[in-house]
Nucleic acid binder design. Sequence first.
DNA 1: CTGTTAGCGCTTTCAC
DNA 2: GTGAAAGCGCTAACAG
Lengths: 382, 382
Amino acid sequence: MIKCPHCQQVDSINKTGIVRGKQRYFCKSCEVHFSFPTAEPTRSSRRHQVTIVDIAQELGISKSTVSRALRGQSDIHPGTRQAVLDAVKQFDYQPNLLAHSLVKSRSNTVGIMVPEFVSFFFPKVIIGAQNVLAEAGYNVVICHSNESYETEVANARALLASRVDGLLVSHTKETRNFDHFRAFQRRGIPVVFFNRFCEDMDVSKVTVDDQAGAFKAVEHLIQTGRRRIAHLAGPDSLTNSRNRLNGYRDALRHYGIAEEPELVISYDLTLEKANIYVNHLLNLPQPPDALFTINDPTAIEALKVIKSRGLRIPDDIAIVGFSNDPISALVEPGLTTVAQPVNEIGQESARLLLRQLTSELDVEPETVVLPTELIVRGSTVS
Amino acid sequence: MIKCPHCQQVDSINKTGIVRGKQRYFCKSCEVHFSFPTAEPTRSSRRHQVTIVDIAQELGISKSTVSRALRGQSDIHPGTRQAVLDAVKQFDYQPNLLAHSLVKSRSNTVGIMVPEFVSFFFPKVIIGAQNVLAEAGYNVVICHSNESYETEVANARALLASRVDGLLVSHTKETRNFDHFRAFQRRGIPVVFFNRFCEDMDVSKVTVDDQAGAFKAVEHLIQTGRRRIAHLAGPDSLTNSRNRLNGYRDALRHYGIAEEPELVISYDLTLEKANIYVNHLLNLPQPPDALFTINDPTAIEALKVIKSRGLRIPDDIAIVGFSNDPISALVEPGLTTVAQPVNEIGQESARLLLRQLTSELDVEPETVVLPTELIVRGSTVS
DNA sequence: CTGTTAGCGCTTTCAC
DNA sequence: GTGAAAGCGCTAACAG
């Protein structure tokens, strides 16, 4: 029997419909609306998950007390706390993070956005970052933009909408407008770039010494007697691509070798194009005696092309890649490459982000440059 | 000048503190508390993101109207809508998904949990699933459990807490208790297993014909003249590992070859163990003349070991892997392997999940079995 | 130590 | 068409 919560009368009550699994009533004498759970659970109430209110009602205490018991910081009667804990177990209560985040206006979640994650690099970075973030109590949501600027912008909106507390990001090769990242900054949400970054944004960045790494690679080629060294460079939109090209030039200059424009080709990182350009280089009247590529997949594609044309590696042409992809140890000959500390990139990015997340003050953005290491294999020396 | 919102008096007001960026007041005559935004914004209000209330105030309309304009379904004055849309643009308003999800009690988010994502398989599956889910308007949060049961349970809790609407999952090799997944079922949150699954759970599953695939692989070895065929099997906890072993046995039986227990080794999928067991097999008084492995990384490790011992592939020993990892085309000789339709696994899983998510009725769980294809390369025929 | 109350940002009746 | 009010599940200030 339904009583009006105000006048306690029974006979002035009208049903006025069901809202979110609760029957709504109207008391004619008090002219007031109120609601109670329906006797027969509706579809939505069948799905009703246990809340602190359910626990509070069950125990005959207030929901604040339940909340306190659950967070276990404020003073609370040990008995009460135990009762709550028992009820939680009994009803298999799961806190609603959405509600929690809403009231705290922080989600305890950081977004990680990468351009792709089929090659080994980004997954490894993510794992490194995730380990550090998890330890600090942060959840991680991973997005990949598939090297598409549009997807990247859409992902950024979604992360903003789900109120991530921070963002770790490596942008697509198409990205030239960074407003979707500035939107985070504007809202005071810290952003850390890794691997690929926008030089104009005043945020923390984690990268490797691309230029020095490329220098070491090309120096190694020169020191093993190569003189016509080609470079398959990445798109100009990527900082690391530009830096590796600079390193290549530094080395040539340092050893007094004139740069041949025809030996430097910028391309879009797709294997199809890599194939075409390697063939192009080999078809030159004076083909190169060495090839330094922007990354390992490109180098391995080159290796395939070169072998298929019956040329010997490294005798006829030497190859150096970049990143030390696990595959590079498996191909034949093994690929000489510049190793990056992949895991550290992730960890360091996460640490920079945490510093901004946990500090009360405004933290100055930092740029961390990690070292690379030349790994020499059969593709340059026999 | 602060007025009491009830009695409109000015002189009976006390300040009582600041709460979440708002100054709180107490009216002594009405004995009532109320609050207003502080004049000088506090730290938290500096971070205040634009809400529909801000827009409503700016436009002098109610927040309900703003909400309606934003969703653009209910009848609304075109002028009002345009005004709202303009204001949204002007203030760079971003809806708060947390609040939205809280009131709708659905997050429009599905969780994808995989045991690892360094090898190509799971990333590809994720991409396939994500494409389908994105098209249906769902966000995706990706978790990886790092082959750790504990991490898996923790991830499951986190996903439950963030109220995902559904779950796509491939469990760890350690997982033998599936209660953390049953918790989703119990709450009416649909779960779809792919690749690895719990046979006892009444949920949708997507897998490949592991047994038939393994049969084809071993049949191929037999037809190319092999008789002592070893199998490096995965852990017994994985369904696909058991099924591939069954396929191996089927083939031997079908061709009248007795199974040699010493040639079948179950192991934990780590490369260290793979190395040890391959060496062990090669050290047998009667070493195998062929090796079928649970997956490609194992096969490639075997390939390295075999080559390093100076044996010829496929002359002395043939190798077949499983999954058609891109690496398998790059090693030398190329690795014969059983290809899985990786992208389709992801897409199909997503479709099964969507069917349950979008249907009003209870949808019967389905199991989808996708075909495999034998890819013959140099590791079995020269 | 605990209950009351207000509020996080949004949707959704109901009433006009 | 629009506004007022209630409520999603939770936290936190305040007053006992």
